[in-house]
């Protein structure tokens, strides 16, 4: 994806990535962990015209549970911007967010052993 002009890497030292979020830098998803898992709820938006193209893409990607970092990486958007977009979707009940504490309270011994074996097999 080609980022919009004002997100261009060559834009100079001071850029305004928050143009996508209509200038807002804060949202209900501010504390969203980088590896929190996001899943589209499947609910239809009340006002589809309010959903930005980037948010449609997020809903598309999160048809399967996807982490916040993977969303940011897939969309090539900065993490803070993605948090604002996710906050809006969350406020509208369009996504569900599972913080990592809920995903794995502490990685279990079983999981860690699986990771060790998986790394050995790489």
């Amino acid at each position: 994806m080609t980022p919009p002009e004002w997100l261009d890497d060559d834009a100079g030292p001071v850029v305004r990535p928050y143009a996508l979020t209509r200038g807002r830098a804060r949202s209900s998803a501010d504390d969203l962990d980088l590896i929190a898992m996001v899943t589209a709820s499947g609910n239809a938006p009340r006002d589809p015209a309010e959903i930005s193209p980037e948010q449609w893409r997020i809903l598309d990607i999160t048809a399967r549970a996807t982490s916040v970092v993977d969303i940011a990486s897939d969309l090539d958007l900065a993490i803070g911007v993605v948090r604002v977009l996710l906050g809006d979707l969350q406020d509208q009940g369009l996504i569900r967010v599972r913080p990592p504490a809920q995903v794995a309270p502490l990685p279990s011994e079983r999981i860690l052993k699986e990771v060790i074996n998986g790394l050995r097999a790489l």
Partner: peptide
């Protein structure tokens, strides 16, 4: 390796950037 960008807040007031009425102006570099 995958691209991942985060933002560094330069200041909470715009630095030579027009203020956007009523919204928080956060000046950052990615």
């Amino acid at each position: 390796i995958r691209p991942l960008r985060t933002e560094e807040v330069l200041s909470d007031r715009g630095v030579g950037v027009d203020d956007v009425g009523g919204v928080e102006a956060k000046t950052t570099t990615t």
